[in-house]
């Protein structure tokens, strides 16, 4: 039976996730990752075992039982910090540096973006991932849904 066909459970112990195959007592520590964290976060999920080797890739979390799914969701939420921008309070362009002041679903934030061609990644002309100079990611889920003032501010820094 291949790894994909075997039934398993995901269990959380403190802040670590373990995988246990049905009928086995052995639990192995695993990492859950999105294979496409920027372009398609929320799609496939890879379960990585010891030695950084992938155990299996799930098309979606629906394949898991409800308990394992809850563990997986919680773990992925923990691993991936992408603040969703709800309002652009202000932007400023100085010497090619783009300063952003935004409201996000995680609170207010100020950050700086350089080289917008590399660090402002557009998807479907509406979703934007902004990567600041220190490696933090911020997301505008829908540019067209932002209020007019936010769009005007964002436009200035794009």
């Amino acid at each position: 039976m291949s790894e994909e066909q075997k039934k398993f459970k995901l269990i959380r112990k403190l802040d670590r996730v373990f995988l246990r195959y049905d009928g086995s007592d052995e639990e192995q520590p695993v990492r859950l990752v999105w294979p496409r964290p920027i372009s398609a976060r929320g799609k496939e999920v890879s379960i990585i075992g010891e030695g950084k080797k992938e155990i299996l890739m799930l098309d979606s979390l629906d394949r898991l039982d409800s308990e394992s799914r809850a563990v997986a969701k919680e773990e992925l939420e923990r691993r991936y910090l992408v603040a969703r921008i709800t309002r652009v309070i202000g932007t400023q362009v100085d010497f090619g540096n783009r300063y952003w002041h935004v409201d996000t679903d995680r609170g207010e934030r100020k950050f700086l973006i350089k080289e917008p061609s590399k660090n402002m990644i557009w998807f479907n002309d509406d979703r934007i991932i902004l990567r600041d100079t220190l490696g933090n990611h911020h997301e505008i889920e829908s540019y067209s849904s932002l209020d007019a003032r936010s769009r005007a501010e964002a436009e200035r820094a794009m």
């Binding site: 112990k13 403190l14 802040d15 670590r16 999105w34 964290p37 923990r78 691993r79 991936y80 910090l81 992408v82 490696g135 933090n136 990611h137």
Partner: peptide, 18 residues
């Protein structure tokens, strides 16, 4: 190391605690 963040983990006999 996590995506866009990190955490400091304490490894104890009971397991790993962030």
């Amino acid at each position: 190391e996590l995506f866009s963040s990190s955490c400091l983990v304490a490894v104890t006999e009971k397991g790993e605690k962030c």
